[in-house]
Computed example of a mutant assay.
Amino acid sequence: MQNKINGVIFDFNGVIINDSWLHETSWLEVFRELVPNKNHSIDSIKKLIHGRTNKDIFESIYNKDISTEEIERLSEFKEQKYRLLFKENLKQVQLDKHTIYLFEYLKNNDVPFTIATASGLSNLKFFFEILSLSNWFDLDKIAYDDGTILGKPEPDIYIKAAKNISTNIENCLVIEDAVSGIKAAHSAGASYIVGFGVSYPHDVLIKHGANIAIQSFSTFPYNKLNEK
């Protein structure tokens, strides 16, 4: 039996905004510059990056531990590429009306909600400014890659996100677009998991722990928020 839902946690990239392709493109550029002697492709990048922290990704590139200072430098190198692509494609990554409706519904019905993301603070601040996220979200309550938390598929970031909105993950509905994120939410013990978008086939998301899978928030299961 599922617990009553009294909190909602969103993944960010690929869920709130359709920008996974921008991350994949910017990471592909990074891989080609840092490891030019290998054949890299979008498909190989997808298998390496989604849900993982920058530290995990860069250490997989170099196959060794990397200092915090070097991770910060490399991360900014990558994120500058991403932010430039984001601005160049701004019209394609705006919040859609169904996403905004869901935010407003949660806000007006006093349902606590936040974000759990592998993005770092510099990107979060960029998103808050360019997408006006402060209309709905409190930056201080978002669980993000601060260099201390394990990346997905480890459950830590979802447990932290639930704590940030003063609830338990067992009472949260999670929305995720990637297999690593689905695994993280399932492992954390989320009450209900919504697989989202088109990054993965929906049957794959359900196989790894999603309760349902939807392509857009136009078919979000609002009924789950009203169950007693």
Rank of each mutant, 00 (worst) to 15 (best):
Q2K: 14
Q2I: 13
N3H: 15
I5Y: 07
N6D: 12
G7T: 06
V8W: 00
F10N: 14
D11G: 14
F12G: 03
V15T: 15
N18D: 11
D19Y: 00
D19C: 11
W21H: 11
H23I: 09
E24V: 15
T25Y: 11
S26P: 03
E29T: 08
E29V: 07
V30H: 04
R32C: 07
E33C: 02
P36W: 02
N37E: 14
K38W: 07
I42P: 01
I45M: 08
I45V: 15
I45D: 08
K46G: 05
K46T: 04
L48Q: 12
I49D: 04
H50L: 03
S60T: 14
Y62A: 03
N63P: 00
S67R: 07
S67M: 09
T68V: 13
T68L: 09
E69K: 10
I71A: 09
L74V: 07
L74A: 03
S75I: 02
E76P: 04
E76L: 14
F77Y: 13
F77K: 00
E79R: 00
Q80P: 02
K81C: 00
Y82H: 06
R83A: 02
F86M: 01
K87Q: 11
L90K: 02
K91W: 04
K91M: 13
V93F: 01
V93D: 10
Q94Y: 09
L95G: 05
H98Q: 08
T99N: 04
I100Q: 02
I100Y: 04
Y101I: 09
F103T: 04
N108C: 14
V111K: 08
P112V: 10
P112C: 14
F113D: 02
F113L: 10
I115A: 06
A116E: 06
T117P: 00
S119F: 05
G120N: 10
S122A: 13
N123G: 06
L124Q: 09
L124I: 15
F126A: 11
F126N: 10
F126T: 01
E129R: 12
I130V: 15
I130H: 10
I130L: 12
S132F: 13
F137A: 02
L139I: 13
Y144A: 09
G147A: 08
L150V: 05
L150A: 13
K152Q: 02
K152E: 05
T167M: 10
N168M: 13
I169H: 04
I169N: 03
L173T: 12
I175G: 05
I175W: 01
D177M: 07
D177N: 07
A178I: 01
V179Q: 08
S180K: 05
G181E: 00
G181F: 06
K183V: 12
A184M: 07
H186T: 15
A188P: 07
S191Y: 03
G195E: 03
S199A: 02
Y200E: 12
P201R: 09
I206V: 14
H208Y: 15
G209S: 06
A210Q: 01
A213V: 01
A213M: 04
F217E: 03
F217C: 05
S218H: 07
T219G: 04
P221A: 11
Y222A: 09
Y222C: 03
Y222V: 08
N223Y: 11
E227F: 11
E227V: 11
E227A: 09
E227L: 15
K228V: 12
K228Q: 11
